[in-house]
Design a protein around this nucleic acid. Sequence first.
DNA 1: ACTTCGTGTCATTGG
DNA 2: ATCCAATGACACGAA
Length: 441
Amino acid sequence: MDVAWQELMAITELQEFEVPTENSYETTQYQTMEPMASVGEYGMAQPHSEPPAACELRTAEAYNGFYSEEVPTCHRLGTSTETMYGNSEPQLHQRILPISSHPQQSFVPLREQTNMSGVNQGHRRTNACLTQGLRGHMQWTVHGQNAHTRSGDDLESDSGLSLGSSPPLASPDNPVGGAPGYQSVDIGMAYSDGEPDSMTEHTRRSHLHYSADYQNHTHSYLHSGAHPSYFSAQPILSQPQPSTQTPRSMKHQGSAAALSDLYNDSAMSSRGSSHLNMYIKPQGSISTPPLSRDERRALALKIPFPMDKIINLPVDDFNELLTQYTLTDAQLALVRDIRRRGKNKVAAQNCRKRKLESIIHLERELNQLQAQREHLAQERLEFQRSLAFVKCRLTDLYTQVFSHLRDEDGQPYSTDEYSLQQTPDGKIYLVPHTMQKREPC
DNA sequence: ACTTCGTGTCATTGG
DNA sequence: ATCCAATGACACGAA
């Protein structure tokens, strides 16, 4: 990754290599380039003492690309050098391709190099940020699918809700020690078998007969919709519920719909511990997945309304819902925690999706920039070759013109004593070297 | 046994 | 003051 970015940063050196536009072909731009083939100085002030060998690059084909042979030599001498490149300019432009036209190259597996967790997961940092109560809570935590790996004590603790050591789950809504109701809950009654996570459908149903009120809600609580609503966040992704939606909640559904693909992918992934997974028996029949931790807690505390409402109702509706029931402190605390966790779960999913999208975007950008860099490097090589050729050609012309000059006696001028120089107005003068030093042109 | 990935959760922050 | 979304960090289970 570092190497890739270093390569990327190297592009800055190419930024000085501007693509010439019409009448903007400044040779000075290239004077800082790498040394080129020794074809003599470009400037006319220091001509060769003897006619140099003809340019190796001087072929008819190469010429046609940059010169017009109909232009008289004297005319070329009398004009600025820019005009000599007129024919080459369109070609140069044609070589400039928009970045977007570059086909996608193979992706750098950036994601594979990125630890999404942000930390070395092998490094289990002591949970310093957790309060003592939270730490206790974490010890009680049992995830649904793997409860069989825990001891019976853990199972009971989890299902019953950590209630003692983790009052109100350290929720901001629940001051520590402010929920005595938790301790009064008879968890053993709810999970008398001691294995709540491995409850069969039969046993689960048997636990739903708490009260008439609660029983009336069990359908929506556990089996509403096409798929179980046991997953607290799932309702956001399910069909809209116009009757209970406010503009605020509708907004949430809109954003969630855009994420449905990701959720479908992740939810149905064979990896991870997602509670979204449909539990398909080997025979192919779909069974009810284990209850989530919060669902078990809600069952234990006999929360009289469904999880999806707890989580997805707008705050006003949620508060109104709470007023419709007389809840104990423990129930209130649990409901608020369920709501907080459920919303945060969705937020985390959205956050991760954005993170992945950001990585994908950066990978694409990196590939495009690498392709652009490669293209510019190629272009630079072509310009260097062209420039070397032009220099060689100019040297030839200079030598040719100089050799035809004669003094008053009909003798050729010595290149050691004279040189041809061009003034800004385009006129050519034969200047002695002595004057040249005093009056640099 | 170890690593990687996906996920849930908590704490924190800023709007 | 409260709610909420976003996010880093951590823990955990599955593969």
